[in-house]
Amino acid sequence: MALQLNRDHLEAIRDHGRRDYPTECCGILLGHAKGDHKQVVEVIALKNLRREPEKARELLPVADPDRETERNRFLIDPRDQLRIEKGARAKGLEVVGYYHSHPDHPAQPSSYDREHAWPWYSYVIVSVQDADPKEVNSWVLAADRSRFEPEAIQLANSPHPHAAPVHLSEHSESNGL
């Protein structure tokens, strides 16, 4: 189980997290999938619909509107998904996953993430501390929905793309900033 992307893709995700801080950012990962190996071809930044609370709540209500805001929740507009999926199919690509940021929280899924997750997709999370993007991790929901499994991120231009996968941290990506 691995998600392959290149440095530009990774930088696009981190940069979006920085740009939108302290709001959660989100976007779509398009690419190819073969078995449980996914290759990202395109990263598309999207608007966090929680910035429009009323509209977002019509689509997916929240339990505590005062505490569940765009700073700790994201929702992708399904119309964006529909439009992008159509475009992707026309280009022979498919949606392989999604990314979002955790402002001032680790790049680990919350229970809310898990409750709302779908199987198969890669869920990439970037931790952004004080507007500075830190570690990036990818996760896939376990078949029984009990937890997220960590998914290795492989850098496409790495000299040894098939080397033992590691989770990326700000240290391994410091050259990219």
């Binding site: 959660e24 505590d64 994201f74 955790h102 929280h105 680990q108 229970s111 997750a117």
Partner: peptide, 16 residues
Amino acid sequence: SIAGGSLLRGNCSGPE
């Protein structure tokens, strides 16, 4: 629906 988020502020039980 693609949704998610981090822990609620004031909930310091750590990531899960």
